[in-house]
Each structure stands twice: as structure tokens, then as C-alpha cells.
């Protein structure tokens, strides 16, 4: 029983990190039709910016996080949109997919060449150790990760639901043209989604890197998981990405213990294929009308 609770907590906590990356992924898709194949690298790079800030400027983790947040929002948010997404707005989905694949390779190689090819230790922001709640003990780090992720997700939801800018963003995601006619500053809202994506990725980097260490190719598996989570949950819904992320996190932890470590990474993929076969709009998404 206590094992199951522990697994559940650690599963939900890794799942919450996946959800952060998946939600950013979904945001970009909804507002600009960008399928960002570099999403994993968008999480990898901020971790290295934090490391660089800590080593070069000799600041603490929190300041490093703030620096990384600003740099990421400029580079992975605004510059990414301006330099890559905007010029390709009318080229269709495929050229942008290719460009983001190339961007991912570029980021990986840049980190490998200019920083290090070796895995770098990364300080956890929460103390190690376990906490006893009644008969079960859970890791403090898991709880802390979960708490931070939940606060971030709630803040994002509140922003989207309750603020004027947030509602404008939703309008843009639902129907760009109508939003424009109604006077929503579409371009600025799109820029916001890119900034939010970069911020979510930086937060995910802070939470996930202590477990996996900082390595230039971390993005490969993370990007794939964010992708799967977004599709399994429902590509056209934010709550889909959230649920998908949590689900994949849980599945990941339980299969590793109860089924097989070898096929640990296969289960989410099988889930992906099954979902596409039987419920292509995702477990929590709404059905899109078919084109034909």
C-alpha cells in the first residue's frame, strides 16, 4: 500500500513536469499551428543557462532561475517567433516542422560544443529526504516539485480564464479571424503564448533537471514525452495536455516497477497509438470536424 502511494506521488510529480512542457506545446499549436519539434530542447537549454549563470556569475539557484527565465523568454519566446515562426506563417505546417527539427539539432550541438558533452550535476531546489504522512513516507522533493508545478498551472489557468489578456488569447486560439475582427491585438496575443511557452519550459527545466542531470541530449526524450502527453490528452485542449502529462508520468512510474524497465518507454507509445486509433481527438479533447 505504502509503495503504491509513493509511486503515485512520484508519478504525479514527474507527470506535472511533463504537463508543463506539454501545455506549452499545445499553446503554440493552438495559436500558430506550430508543431514544435524542439520542445525538448526548449527545456534542456534553460537548464544550461541556469548552470552558466551559477558558474559564471556566481549567483544562487533562484537568481539563476530568474536570469534563465528572462533569457529564455527573449531567445526561445520572442526571437523564436520573430526569426522562425513569423516568416514561415504562410508556408504551411511542414517547413516549420523541418525548421524546428533543425533548431533542436542546433541547440543540442551548441550546448555540446560550447558548454560540455558530459552530464552536469544540477542542484535540487528542495532538500532531500522523506516526509512521513501517517504510515507512508514520501520524498520531500516530489512534494516540492508537485507544489511548484501545481501553483504554476493554477496561475496559468487563472490568467487564461480570469484576465482580459488571457481571454483574448483564448479567442485567438479558437478563431484567429473572428478575434481580429473583434479588435483583439492578435499579434501581441501570439507573442504572449510564445513567452508563456518559454516560461513553462524554464520552470520544467528547474524541476526536472535535478533528477536527470543536465545533458545536451536531454531534450530528445523529454520532447517526445511532451508530444505524446499533448496528443494523448487532446491536442486542442489545455486541460488535455495537463491530464496527458499526469497520466504519462503515472504510467511511467508504475510500468517501471510493475511491468518491465526495458519496455518502460514503450507503454506511452502504445498508449499513443491506441488513442489515435480509437479516440483521435485525445482522451480529453473535443472532436474536430472531419474535413471530408
Amino acid at each position: 500500500m505504502s509503495d503504491i502511494v509513493q509511486l503515485f506521488v512520484s508519478g504525479i510529480s514527474t507527470g506535472a513536469i511533463y504537463a508543463l512542457a506539454a501545455m506549452g506545446f499545445t499553446l503554440l499549436w493552438q495559436t500558430t499551428g506550430t508543431i514544435n519539434f524542439a520542445q525538448g530542447e526548449f527545456v534542456m537549454l534553460p537548464a544550461f543557462i541556469m548552470l552558466a549563470a551559477m558558474n559564471l556569475l556566481d549567483v544562487g539557484l533562484l537568481s539563476a532561475f530568474v536570469i534563465s527565465l528572462v533569457v529564455s523568454m527573449v531567445l526561445l519566446g520572442a526571437a523564436f517567433k520573430r526569426a522562425l515562426v513569423d516568416p514561415m506563417a504562410h508556408h504551411g505546417v511542414l517547413p516549420l516542422i523541418i525548421a524546428t527539427i533543425a533548431l533542436g539539432i542546433f541547440m543540442k550541438e551548441a550546448v555540446k560544443t560550447f558548454y560540455s558533452a558530459e552530464a552536469q550535476p544540477f542542484a535540487a531546489f528542495a532538500p532531500e529526504g522523506a516526509m512521513r504522512i501517517g504510515p507512508v513516507s514520501v520524498s520531500i522533493e516530489n512534494i516540492a516539485v508537485l507544489a511548484v508545478a501545481v501553483v504554476a498551472i493554477l496561475a496559468l489557468q487563472l490568467f487564461l480564464q480570469r484576465t482580459f489578456a488571457g481571454r483574448c488569447m483564448q479567442a485567438v486560439a479558437q478563431n484567429r479571424e473572428s478575434a481580429r475582427i473583434l479588435g483583439v491585438p492578435v499579434e501581441r496575443m501570439v507573442l504572449y503564448t510564445f513567452l508563456i511557452n518559454a516560461a513553462l519550459a524554464t520552470l520544467a527545466a528547474l524541476l526536472v533537471t535535478p533528477t536527470y542531470l543536465a545533458k545536451f541530449d536531454n531534450g530528445e526524450s523529454l520532447g517526445l514525452i511532451a508530444f505524446i502527453a499533448a496528443i494523448v490528452g487532446g491536442f486542442n485542449q489545455m486541460r488535455g495536455a495537463l491530464a496527458g502529462g499526469l497520466l504519462i508520468g503515472l504510467i511511467d512510474n508504475f510500468t517501471a516497477v510493475y511491468i518491465s524497465t526495458q519496455y518502460r518507454h514503450a507503454i506511452p507509445l502504445i498508449l499513443l497509438i491506441v488513442v489515435i486509433l480509437f479516440r483521435p481527438q485525445g482522451l480529453f479533447g473535443r472532436a474536430e470536424e472531419r474535413r471530408l
Partner: peptide, 17 residues
């Protein structure tokens, strides 16, 4: 040396734009 993949990736992005 180590830069070729970067050069390559950059060239692909420019080409796509």
C-alpha cells in the same frame, strides 16, 4: 570540427525561411 552540425542546422533553417 564540431561546428558542422550547427552550420548545417542553421543552413536548413535559413533555407526553410
Amino acid at each position: 570540427e564540431g561546428y558542422y552540425l550547427m552550420v548545417y542546422a542553421l543552413a536548413v533553417m535559413v533555407l526553410m525561411v
